[in-house]
Design a protein around this nucleic acid. Structure first.
Lengths: 340, 340
DNA sequence: CGACCTCGTGAGAGCGCTCTCACACTTCAG
DNA sequence: CTGAAGTGTGAGAGCGCTCTCACGAGGTCG
């Protein structure tokens, strides 16, 4: 194989140098047990001498595996990158897959054109499986990938209720718990900054907020609901809108920590104290939640466990042990700090 | 080819259905000119009917190309993702490569173990070329990739001065200009928050700051220099340290916009007005620079042009037209807003 | 002591594609 | 009318690897 003008060695060359057959070299490379110590040794030194690296394409052509997994971000907003939740997930995913000697690659699909392109790329057989995150209602990718029969796991349940393996948190329960906590603290004019309502996490957390109000016998007030976009700037903007429309609010459930940080800033700028005037609860338990001023009370989701489960479900499909789509729902936990 | 239990069609099956030879199908797939319209039509409909997708591994095995390019982030700090500079670059890179029908994948190499793993993955032939960004002094990757002869372009000149194609801005000149601007505005106690000094951008911007001071005949004062890490939190921390150590500073050159935003916050918290008490200049002209309070005066680098150049240099190597390593240095531009 | 294993090895087919080459057929200049 | 040039097509080799199968050498057992 030629890269940059130099030719890389092949199995045959290694075999010749080691004085064995191609099959034996292949056995050594793949750690097959039945090889004599002498042959193994000869091959290893030939490999080292030639700086031999197996050609992945040739190998994959016969094994039908690439040992690489794709994490696909279906997000028009390049701000996803900015979300610490996402950064942590990448780290954890990558570590988990390393344990199985598989590589992780990230693909971003910003618009329909890129989604189709990514779909094609995946169908061509570049990867053994796909983890799909940050899904919006009109995403093409779940459909494209499902019909291409590539092993697939979603983060968050599919908006259309399709039968696909996925891992999710009980967002609604978490949001309801957060709202109940605010009620129990004596708050009565509880506002919310929602996530994007074309994403399942946005929808479910908003539903949980409503359930929390209903459970407490409180009415849902339109002026206390403002849509956000999961970014800090969006959270600040939404908070300002809420303050303008309902200056007497005494609490706010914010559907993500970055937005909650923005809300904190907007409240501070408006001269409100937290939690004195307004109690704030966030969602995610991002790193920033512990360092904000005041530290955020927030709904934590077990990100590491979720990542572990995604890898588990995906690898089961990759290994061929998967029969039916599987679903795992994780519990949330309210982390009480100073903001509420 | 089997994915998830179903078998995907091969070229031969398409050929049989279309009533032509495998070679003709291949010609149609690859847009070769000499195919009769009838044959072309027959193949197209067979492809559509079988939902045929070429097997990338088989194709790559013979063509020696994968039509995918990797962007490798060599960064232990998962905060890189958070940097808007990086997000913009990904978007632009992806768009540029789309024009040439190549896919972009991202790989993160957080520690030496992952760097070696990425190096191996690349050497195995998964990609046609690599763009390497966010380089630190002790990174293994430049060395690993260079000796594997894979087409390679760095963002930022190599710290060890090795002969590798790269694209960079004239960081030192930009920083010197910023410093001169502060001097011209009558500032005399000009501090700096540097970038990480094991990264070339950190080193060069710091050098530019020193040159700016020297050109104005101002001394370099140790208490006016604090290291940062290119993050907002790091910028705030550094600014607080500077204020404590040198309460009488009247300006600060901050080596990145996210850090400058953090510095702005620290200054605000310390009761200093900007630019009244302290003038602030950032670097990058990130989106946030225009929306911060006050909007940031900052050194802009032509990110889109740099990305375009990286793609150009890389593709030239991929196409085999590259002889020697090539270098492109872009000019910076001072964008004056309200903070200085 | 022949039948039967086990073990290490090599020969060779084949994964799905591209691409060179040869061939049949047409077109056209001389 | 002949030779050269051009056009569409198919046969077949080969990319670098894995993996099945056959085989010979040595060991075990009835």
């Amino acid at each position: 194989m030629t890269i940059g003008g130099r030719t890389s060695p092949t199995l045959d060359e290694v075999a010749e140098l080691a004085g064995v057959s191609r099959a034996t070299v292949s056995r050594v490379i793949n750690d097959s047990p039945r090889v004599s110590p002498e042959a193994r040794e000869a091959v290893h030194s030939a490999v080292a001498q030639l700086r031999y690296v197996p050609n992945r394409m040739a190998r994959s052509l016969v094994t039908r595996r690439t040992d690489t997994i794709a994490l696909v971000l279906s997000e028009s907003n390049s701000q996803v990158f900015t979300d610490p939740f996402f950064a942590s997930m990448v780290r954890e995913l990558s570590a988990r897959l390393s344990d199985t000697d598989r590589a992780l690659v990230l693909l971003a699909a910003r618009d329909r054109g890129e989604q189709e392109k990514v779909g094609r790329w995946v169908r061509q057989g570049h990867v053994d499986g796909v983890v799909l995150v940050s899904l919006h209602r009109d995403d093409l990718l779940p459909g494209l990938l499902r019909e291409s029969n590539v092993p697939l796991v979603l983060l968050g349940r599919p908006l259309d209720g399709a039968a696909v393996s996925h891992v999710d948190t009980d967002n609604a329960a978490g949001a309801a718990t957060a709202t109940a906590y605010l009620v129990a603290a004596g708050r009565r004019r509880i506002a919310t900054v929602t996530g994007p309502l074309d994403m399942i996490a946005g929808v479910d957390r908003y539903a949980g907020y409503r359930r929390g109000l209903a459970d407490a016998g409180l009415p849902l007030r339109e002026e206390l609901v403002e849509d956000g976009d999961f970014t800090e700037a969006g959270g600040a903007r939404a908070m300002r809108a809420l303050l303008e429309r309902a200056p007497d609010l005494d609490a706010v459930f914010v559907a993500s920590d970055p937005m909650a940080v923005g809300a904190l800033r907007a409240l501070h700028d408006a001269g409100r104290t937290v939690p004195g005037d307004v109690a704030v609860v966030g969602f995610d338990d991002a790193v920033v939640a512990a360092t904000s001023d005041p530290p955020l009370t927030t709904v934590a989701q077990p990100l590491d466990e979720m990542t572990r489960l995604m890898v588990e479900l995906l690898l089961r499909q990759v290994e061929g042990d998967a029969d039916e789509p599987e679903v795992r729902i994780c519990d949330t936990r309210l982390v009480v700090r100073a903001s509420a």
